[in-house]
Design a protein around this nucleic acid. Structure first.
Lengths: 227, 227
DNA sequence: CGGGGGCTTGAGGCCACTCAACGATAGTGG
DNA sequence: CCACTATCGTTGAGTGGCCTCAAGCCCCCG
């Protein structure tokens, strides 16, 4: 047990478990767990990056703000995803819990220490950074050149791959979050979803608007163009 | 000397020089030089990544295409820049010479071999990938949330930092290239530049439209919002 | 001198944004 | 249990910023 300054969003260490960053040699690094309430900040842009996080349950949004409040969400982090991995000392995004979210976390320092001696861990860090880069590259194409319908179709396909359970996409994020991820307004996202509903591409489960069933994945895929 | 299949854009080895990837231990990796004519392809998207490149003189654009021809340029590569660095086996963009361009090139295989034993080289590769990621993250904000004037202002500030000589920005790329980088049309880019000209922010050198002088960098910076 | 590419500028149109109203749901407190 | 409120989502009407289409200029180059 160690002492920690109490702040609202200071993680409290709970357990010691595999962070998914161990190598074949079974190196174990100290690991904590923490839960963030819906809407609370995990870290802010330009803050020193002290921890690296992995979503256990819940969902997190990473975004940048312009001075007048316009927001661009760069990524959603869903269960299993690792985020907050920064090479420089500071975070490039603000990260917030979209819903109540439990994360595993590890001190960046410990991770770098392990990476120095463990080639597998170093490789994994590189691989994750590369994966982030690829996602950002694809997202630039979406933001720069796709229509609203294409963007929403691409979003649904991405979410389908990442969080579908039992044929239902249970979206944790609001229309506004989706809009800020896709470079649109929430009204435009809503209209696109209604249109896809009319087209018979998707359906809603029950009375909620956040549970979606893909009824025609092929047609949806044809609406999102390939690169 | 070694045999090589002759194709239009196959690099021909010329010399052996420092690629900027040597470490303190002075490891030298085999290095070639090649010149691409204006408009020719360096490599295509999804091609296996055999080489890594560094621009010696000239300029290169990296882009993705949608099936219907819409184009998004992800980055411009200017003298000193390294590009074509891929972790997976395949290139994520198509790369073309914007003007006659001479590059240094190195086999990816050799580079990875060196990186395995040389920590400094490995670190440099990591650092470059991170730099690419940061650029992409900033560009997502631009593409998703900035107005046309803000985009063009940001573009000019970026180019000013990267290729100004003697107070003049000598742009190698066309209005169409700029537009496809900024997620706009060439007409909108042209109108934004005219507007900045009217505002006294910039001036053109001689009769050419590709040599620009920043007359009021402060005002330009105020037009591009901060994150 | 004719042709073509690059750039600018104007006119009009459209897609996404803005503004607004309304319904549904969940949480709160009397 | 029922207002009351706040949040979220949908939908409509109208606007506007950027796109589309077009004309014309300039420069380069054959």
């Amino acid at each position: 047990m160690f002492v920690r300054i109490a702040t609202d969003r200071s993680p409290r260490p709970n357990s010691l478990r595999d962070f998914g960053m161990t190598s074949d040699s079974n190196t174990i690094v100290s690991l904590s767990e923490f839960t963030y309430k819906k809407g609370t900040e995990v870290y802010g842009e330009k803050e020193p990056a002290e921890y690296v996080y992995q979503v256990k349950v819940g969902a997190v949004r990473s975004y940048k703000l312009l001075t007048d409040g316009r927001r661009q969400i760069g990524a959603f982090h869903l269960p299993g995803d690792i985020f907050g991995l920064e090479n420089g000392g500071a975070h490039r995004f603000t990260a917030e819990a979209i819903i109540d979210t439990t994360v595993h976390l590890i001190r960046r320092q410990s991770l770098e220490l392990v990476a120095k001696s463990d080639v597998m861990v170093a490789k994994n860090l590189f691989r994750m950074t590369t994966a982030n880069l690829h996602h950002a590259e694809d997202h630039m194409l979406l933001l720069g050149r796709k229509t609203s319908l294409e963007r929403v179709a691409a979003f649904l396909l991405e979410m389908d791959k990442r969080l579908t359970a039992a044929g239902v996409i249970a979206l944790p994020m609001s229309r506004r979050d989706i809009a800020d991820y896709l470079g649109l307004t929430l009204e435009t996202v809503s209209r696109a979803l209604s249109r896809l509903h009319e087209l018979g591409v998707l359906g809603f489960v029950g009375n909620t608007q956040r549970q979606i069933v893909l009824q025609d994945r092929a047609k949806l895929a044809s609406l999102d163009l390939q690169s």
